Simulated scan of single mutants.
Amino acid sequence: MSFKDQLNQDIQTVFLNTDEFAELHSINGKEIGCIVDSVDKNESMQYMQGYTIIDKSICLQASLLNVIPKTNNLILFDEDLVRVYKVSNLAGMLYLDVSQSIGKFDKDIAIYNTKEVEVGGGCLEIEIDDIFVSCKAYIRNQSSSEVFKLSTRLEKQQTLFKIPYVEGLEKSMILVYKNCNYNIISIDNIEEDNIFIDLICEKVE
């Protein structure tokens, strides 16, 4: 066994053993043994141009994550969407200082394939076909400034649906939330990390 392998084994069996100090948490959908340390709300740190209070520090084995988060990335910690403000990787132990919850990944949505159906006179109509994926999502209405930055039309209220990464999404699909249908206006694989996808959608009236 190499030194690196021995070190990773010691980290998992000693420091991050869930029978000892660690607890199981979900990070970007993967169950991982972590040590979570809440930060005193009176302690704060300066980052970039903002004054941000760190909510907690998460310690875990770096090799268990498919993608190591970068500063200012969003991660899904249990059901909470949080922002990473500091990343330290020390001898295979990863330390993440993260913000308070930005929002919850707790809304049930479904995305369906569509098909063209002839309705007479050579006219075609789009109908919902079989289901493509169902998942939890974080949902937020887009502000006017956000819509302008995305260079999308402002004819209707647009809604952001942030979902776990899934391959094969197309704008021709229909998103369904609370029995309402939404057209997908744009699809953004955030940072090309295959962790989150942002869907900008408009409600079908």
Rank of each mutant, 00 (worst) to 15 (best):
201 C>M: 02
2 S>F: 07
120 G>D: 04
23 E>W: 03
125 E>P: 00
171 K>I: 09
145 S>L: 10
151 S>L: 10
152 T>A: 06
70 K>N: 14
185 I>F: 03
142 Q>N: 14
74 L>H: 10
70 K>T: 10
52 T>W: 06
133 V>A: 05
107 K>R: 09
62 A>T: 04
141 N>I: 09
26 S>Y: 11
189 N>Y: 08
61 Q>V: 12
122 G>F: 07
140 R>N: 09
123 C>G: 00
147 V>C: 06
51 Y>W: 07
39 V>W: 03
196 F>W: 01
33 G>V: 04
105 F>P: 01
115 K>W: 01
3 F>M: 14
14 V>H: 06
24 L>R: 07
202 E>W: 01
102 I>R: 05
13 T>R: 13
177 Y>D: 03
53 I>W: 04
204 V>Q: 14
94 L>V: 09
50 G>Q: 15
22 A>G: 10
151 S>F: 07
142 Q>S: 11
79 E>L: 12
199 L>Y: 04
187 I>A: 01
103 G>P: 03
100 Q>Y: 12
52 T>P: 01
41 K>P: 06
17 N>A: 02
42 N>Q: 12
103 G>V: 08
145 S>H: 04
130 D>M: 07
150 L>P: 11
43 E>W: 06
40 D>T: 07
114 T>W: 01
108 D>E: 13
160 L>M: 12
166 V>E: 10
68 I>D: 03
196 F>C: 00
169 L>E: 03
2 S>K: 11
152 T>D: 05
201 C>Q: 02
187 I>R: 05
113 N>V: 00
94 L>S: 00
79 E>K: 14
53 I>R: 11
72 N>Q: 13
134 S>C: 11
22 A>F: 08
177 Y>H: 02
109 I>C: 02
129 D>T: 03
77 F>S: 02
88 S>K: 15
139 I>C: 09
19 D>L: 15
191 E>Y: 11
62 A>K: 06
170 E>K: 14
166 V>P: 08
157 Q>P: 09
49 Q>W: 12
132 F>Y: 05
149 K>I: 11
127 E>G: 03
101 S>C: 12
29 G>V: 10
189 N>S: 14
166 V>K: 10
55 D>M: 07
200 I>G: 00
153 R>F: 07
4 K>T: 15
75 I>A: 03
44 S>V: 14
173 M>V: 06
126 I>V: 08
42 N>W: 06
121 G>E: 09
185 I>C: 02
72 N>S: 14
49 Q>P: 05
53 I>D: 07
64 L>V: 12
22 A>H: 09
167 E>I: 05
109 I>M: 01
78 D>L: 11
150 L>I: 08
84 V>E: 05
9 Q>P: 02
38 S>P: 13
109 I>A: 00
116 E>L: 13
132 F>A: 03
137 A>N: 01
188 D>M: 07
